[in-house]
Design a protein around this nucleic acid. Sequence first.
DNA 1: TTGCGTGTTCAGTGTGAACTGAAGTCGATC
DNA 2: GATCGACTTCAGTTCACACTGAACACGCAA
Lengths: 154, 154
Amino acid sequence: MSVERETRLSAWVERVAAHFTQEGIPLIGGRIMGYLLVCDPPERTAAELSEELEASSGSISTNLKLLVNMELVTKKTRRGRDAALYRIDEKRWADMVQRRLDAMIGVRELTRAGMQLLSGDPHRAHRLRTVDELYTWLAGELTELWERRPQPPR
Amino acid sequence: MSVERETRLSAWVERVAAHFTQEGIPLIGGRIMGYLLVCDPPERTAAELSEELEASSGSISTNLKLLVNMELVTKKTRRGRDAALYRIDEKRWADMVQRRLDAMIGVRELTRAGMQLLSGDPHRAHRLRTVDELYTWLAGELTELWERRPQPPR
DNA sequence: TTGCGTGTTCAGTGTGAACTGAAGTCGATC
DNA sequence: GATCGACTTCAGTTCACACTGAACACGCAA
């Protein structure tokens, strides 16, 4: 039963990794994300991740750095020779999602610039204006939405 | 002045393409998007796009197909040997954005499945639950947001 | 200083995706 | 049916990126 569950979980980790691959995160990075979400105990060393996920130490290092940089994983160093411990910072997940949304509505800078270039020719700018209005609306809504986001306790 | 503007516009098209590259759209596809947003007149044949964007006919064909499939570009065939005309369907831009958002919150299927696997161990499921709650909240908000989206006139 | 465990860097390899361009298909006209 | 133009398909090439693993750097302990 327990072994069975771990097997299913590692298949689940693979699905998570596949999903985030589509969001531009390297496969190994996605595996780390999934694994750190469900492993028990929640903290792991780089060496443990390397073994558990069957990835090279270099790849683990690079991807941990990426995830730490995204502030989705925290690194806890210890005294002496002890290896650092990594754990998911699930409360920061929202920040990552927000950055993703911000990147989407970032096109608005471009639509604005394009409108500028087409100023003086409203007819020609019509298509662009439609798109610009969409992003303007969306940017406003998302900002408002994010401001009223319920903070999880603790 | 007009030539100057066209030069600036083609640089702008390049920036648009670069942006959508990050959203997983091939470079040439992004160029087509940008170009069809601002070209005058708004309709173009595949051959014209090939020349204007200096891309091979094959690449134009593949990417137009992609964009038509995304319903972001419409294809208008004509009688006889005349080439089909392509134009941006800027009103469908919102649909593309929505699909993108749907893909993001699609992880929720995974968090749900993971929670299932960890049922019976609430403590271990804690990290995952935090993430699941985020996506659940976001999915609800985005659905509601989209429902009240102002439809552009016409 | 030496030794050891850990993490990082980097050159090399492999893989997959995008682009090209020529060949092929389709449809219409003559 | 032959021909022609327009688009699509596809094999081949190119290129960028992720991954590997060995060499390296670091820090502590003895």
